[in-house]
């Protein structure tokens, strides 16, 4: 077990260094990736700010609370962008071209090879934006000491849940001619999750919390951080994380059975 973990860590280290060298050979793209995310983060926060110039609250939250929520979501987004996002786009291509074959014959877990191989080192730099943003708005809303301690775990928890759901959804690519459609669904779900759960009508809210729990990704942890007596969303988050991890394993195996491997 220990040696297996060591092996995977050392493989992951190699992913990091290879991704870094590969990214370095395209400097223009490297810079643009960073800029692209920054433009997104900035316009998102500014939009909320402009909105609050004309109103006092949305639902239960005022300007600072919603901006704190938004910055937590952006932090989760930034970690996803750095560590996994690229792989979701490569995966359907590798199914369509049959490049997945190479991952399948390696003596390493194929889910790991498919979703963690490519890292965007450039996006890592954006932590310089999302990190301070979270801290700044955290100070503005006056987080309790307990909340500060829990903050990193909340962000990581949201990140894990988001990707467990997305990897699970990506298994559907095995059955589709062109799986990029799933990627559009992923992006849409992220868009839905980017706003607090209480803005949605009841039916939509409960299905996105209890069936496909994308609203738990950010709303769960942030509700807890803002009011540490409201711990239930966090329990749900952990529960769903386990559930989707199991589902992923199951559907991945089912998907491999259906995989036809493109003929050369």
């Amino acid at each position: 077990m220990g040696s297996r973990i060591k092996q995977y860590l050392s493989i992951y280290g190699s992913f990091f260094s290879t991704s870094f060298s590969a990214a370095m050979s395209f400097r223009g793209h490297f810079v643009l990736l960073i800029l692209m995310d920054l433009v997104f983060y900035y316009t998102h926060l500014v939009s909320i700010d402009i909105l609050y110039d004309h109103i006092q609250t949305i639902g239960i939250w005022d300007r600072q609370q919603l901006l704190f929520f938004a910055s937590v979501m952006l932090a989760i987004n930034q970690i996803s962008m750095t560590l996994v996002s690229e792989n979701y786009w490569i995966f359907p291509l590798s199914i369509r071209t049959g490049e997945l074959d190479f991952s399948l014959i390696k003596p390493v877990n194929a889910v790991f090879l498919s979703f963690f191989r490519i890292i965007r080192p450039g996006s890592l730099i954006n932590v310089c934006f999302t990190g301070p943003a979270v801290v700044y708005f955290g100070l503005q809303v006056g987080l309790s000491p307990l909340a500060w301690v829990c903050l990193p775990f909340a962000v990581v928890g949201g990140f894990l849940l988001q990707n467990a759901i997305e990897m699970f959804l990506s298994c559907a690519m095995f059955w589709m001619m062109d799986g990029t459609g799933i990627n559009f669904i992923r992006v849409e779900l992220q868009q839905l999750a980017r706003w607090p759960d209480f803005v949605y009508p009841r039916l939509l809210r409960s299905s996105l919390t209890l069936v496909l729990p994308v609203l738990l990704i950010g709303s769960g942890p942030v509700r807890f951080l803002l009011d540490p007596t409201d711990g239930w969303p966090l329990v749900w988050l952990v529960g769903f994380l386990g559930l989707f991890w199991l589902l992923l394993g199951f559907f991945w195996r089912l998907g491999l059975k259906a995989y036809e491997s493109a003929s050369s």
Binding site: T97, G98, D101, S264
Partner: peptide, 15 residues
Amino acid sequence: IALVMGQKSQLWWDL
């Protein structure tokens, strides 16, 4: 086992 496919590459293109 190992598999070589003449029409596909397992080497990283940019490295």
